[in-house]
Write a protein that binds this DNA or RNA. Structure first.
Lengths: 225, 225
DNA sequence: GGCTAAGTGTAAATTAGCCGACATTTTGCT
DNA sequence: AGCAAAATGTCGGCTAATTTACACTTAGCC
């Protein structure tokens, strides 16, 4: 029964849908079934054996600290996303941690070595996985290209559009997004100062493009963004 | 004899070193053995069948043009690098082309579909390739992180350090780099205006950190960067 | 309920670096 | 050799956005 549960947890991810029950069982040394609640910090780099994680519920942000002590948001992980050492290479240079944004999260994980074994035995999965990593890379490239060539305003608009598309609930042209980010988070994601972000958000509210509060963000007409 | 040549061209790349002769022969529909000289522009996206390319000799830059008509340098490809649709996903949205920087280049290519078949039959290669793509992603992330959090000066220094490490010839603490980039190229790579880049380079020359000309860049003491 | 910390709002001073404009130098071509 | 085009060098004005600084509001906790 417990085994079955683990099976389904993985099966849920589109990457693993092609695998048979027995193939997934191979991976099912899903040792960690972790639950955590808002604000908690989860260390996963350099901690112990290299793992790949799957976020089953909630939202977390991946934060890294550079040499000067500056916090940078590396990634926002949403329900269903894989994270951790996706490149299958451990590097313990970078100090990263995850912070829980939503009320609670469920994370499961498996060992990188187990995953590698599985890839070796399932070329089709290996190919899918390569494409998956490739897609991630493409996304990263794209978002960075935005960061570099556009100004803060455009970046905010783009970010909101992306967020709305990924997680927003649309009724007509109105999109409602559950807001689990602070303005500071948003500022960091679009790489600007908090103050600039606030100014832009308020400006959007004045122009009736947005309805912002701590719980949710309502975009009255997504086509106007 | 001709077949053998192709074989060695691929064999040279560390990714393919584990493969046997017959395995590589599978890939050896290396249709394109392209030669080109300085300034030439090579289109490879959207052109015909999706391919993966291997630069055997010389240097090229990958340039993309965005909606506003702005040129952006996406990547600098050096001898031995793979490029093209490394993610194994064709997207014909982006308009990209390659421009030859060195006096002459030799490029060979193989079909993406052939490569996929090979990956499916060689799990070990598939795993290596996945790690290879992962490493690429890590590099991309790193360089972008630099672009965003540091100022133009730091970015230039970092770029020079990286370049020196990759291609420089070191004698003692002195590093000499063959300079196949224009100042405009450098400016674009570190994401600043040409004018700012020039100012910084000249400033470095005054401080004796650098010796710049169109043919080569000499860094008298790499540890001082 | 009241206190503290985190989050939000606003404004002014300061600055990095973009942009336009132009002069000079070098390269490649016929 | 001579010309055009590309590459390099230099200068201020301009502006977006960071920084500093402070007041207000909300959330969470004892």
């Amino acid at each position: 029964m417990y085994e079955d549960l683990k099976y389904w947890y993985l099966r849920d991810h589109k990457l693993f849908r092609t695998l048979s029950y027995s193939q997934i069982k191979q991976l099912c040394i899903i040792t960690g079934f972790k639950k955590a609640s808002k604000g908690e910090i989860i260390y996963f780099s350099s901690s112990d054996v290299p793992r790949i994680f799957l976020l089953k519920k909630g939202n977390i942000k991946i934060v890294s600290i550079d040499d000067d002590g500056n916090e940078t948001i590396k990634d926002i992980i949403q329900k269903g996303d894989l994270f951790g050492e996706l490149t299958l290479e451990t590097d313990n240079k970078v100090e990263e941690y995850a912070k829980v944004l939503s009320d609670d999260v469920v994370i499961c994980s498996f060992l990188m070595s187990d995953f590698e074994d599985l890839l070796l035995r399932n070329p089709t999965l290996a190919l899918s996985y390569t494409k998956f990593v490739g897609l991630k890379m493409k996304r990263v490239k794209n978002s960075y290209a935005n960061l570099i060539s556009k100004d803060a305003k455009t970046r905010l608009y783009q970010f909101l559009k992306d967020w709305a598309e990924q997680e927003g609930v649309q009724t007509g042209n109105t999109v409602t997004i559950e807001n689990y980010l602070t303005q500071n988070d948003i500022a960091q994601i679009i790489c600007t100062s908090r103050q600039t972000a606030v100014q832009l958000i308020n400006e959007m509210e004045i122009n009736q493009l947005l309805n912002y509060n701590r719980k949710e963000i309502i975009i009255p007409d997504i086509t106007k963004l």
